[in-house]
């Protein structure tokens, strides 16, 4: 095989981060969670945080994150990840702490914890995976489901008169003085992944400053919940999700008064 010979002469420019375990991920093919896990762990590896970081993953598809991230982690009850992260950070202030939450968790059942954690300016990173649906329970409507989006609990499409509006919680929490860095990213193309990685880098750098909460929304996909092939979800993200949830920084430290 000529490939092997070639590899000998080449240098490895990308490999699975050592901060991921060898566990086979349970995520469906093409799931954005898995990409986000991998990039998060890449940043943890590159920044040398593996031994000084504690993650929190609450109920939702990513509740098994501790199987894949080779770091200290705590599972959390549905909606309570940021409270759990608060408890950890308060007693271990010299450690890096992050929560990794889905839209149902962060923006529905855990809205109070989300807002108050950020309002206290807890020095943690919140990674918010927004795929507009409840993946783990089988594709029900989420607070961030789009207008007209068909889910198993909005079978005729999300009706604003009945179900209310897609909740733009990221814009909402950006108003809080405790929020230090708020950005919306995605992981569906090489470019968006690179930007997400940069945002994670920023967030962990900022956590060293003890200036407040960093919040990264990741507009993601759910091929199984959306009943699409992974490839089709890429188009859906571009055409449907991003107009409602535009990418980019919402609050950066230069905008902070302190």
């Amino acid at each position: 095989m000529p490939e092997e010979m070639l590899i000998d002469e080449m240098q490895c420019v990308y490999q699975k981060p050592g901060t991921l375990t060898d566990e086979y991920m349970h995520y469906c093919p093409g799931c954005g969670h898995a990409v986000a896990h991998k990039i998060l762990m890449e940043v943890v590896e590159e920044m040398g945080l593996q031994e000084d970081i504690i993650g929190v993953a609450p109920v939702g598809c990513s509740v098994f994150a501790y199987n894949y991230m080779n770091i200290d982690m705590q599972e959390a009850a549905h909606g309570r990840a940021s409270a759990v992260a608060t408890g950890i950070k308060r007693v271990r202030p010299d450690k890096f702490v992050f929560s990794y939450q889905g839209d149902g968790d962060l923006a529905a059942i855990g809205t109070a914890e989300t807002i108050h954690t950020i309002n206290r300016g807890e020095n943690i990173l919140i990674v918010f995976i927004n795929n507009g649906i409840y993946g783990m329970t089988g594709g029900q409507m989420a607070p961030t489901s789009l207008f007209g989006q068909k889910t198993s609990t909005s079978p005729y499409g999300r009706d604003v008169a009945h179900n209310g509006y897609p909740l733009k919680i990221t814009e909402l929490i950006a108003h809080l003085p405790g929020a230090y860095y708020v950005t919306r990213q995605a992981v569906h193309t090489p470019n968006t992944v690179r930007k997400f990685k940069k945002a994670l880098n920023n967030a962990f750098e900022y956590q060293k400053l003890n200036k407040g909460t960093c919040f990264i929304e990741v507009v993601s996909n759910c091929p199984s919940g959306w009943k699409m092939t992974p490839k089709e979800t890429l188009t859906y993200i571009e055409e449907k999700m991003l107009p409602e949830y535009p990418l980019g920084d919402i609050k950066v430290p230069t905008q902070n008064k302190n």
């Binding site: 002469e9 080449m10 240098q11 490895c12 699975k16 991920m25 093409g30 954005g32 990409v35």
Partner: peptide, 30 residues
């Protein structure tokens, strides 16, 4: 890999959810 025209740009590996791709690239010297 079905064609011998890879440039080692890493795009494939970056978006791979399951981290199954390792990318190699010719060094600049080579």
């Amino acid at each position: 890999l079905s064609q011998d025209n890879c440039t080692g740009c890493t795009n494939c590996a970056i978006v791979c959810p399951d981290a199954v791709i390792t990318v190699y690239r010719q060094s600049k010297q080579n």
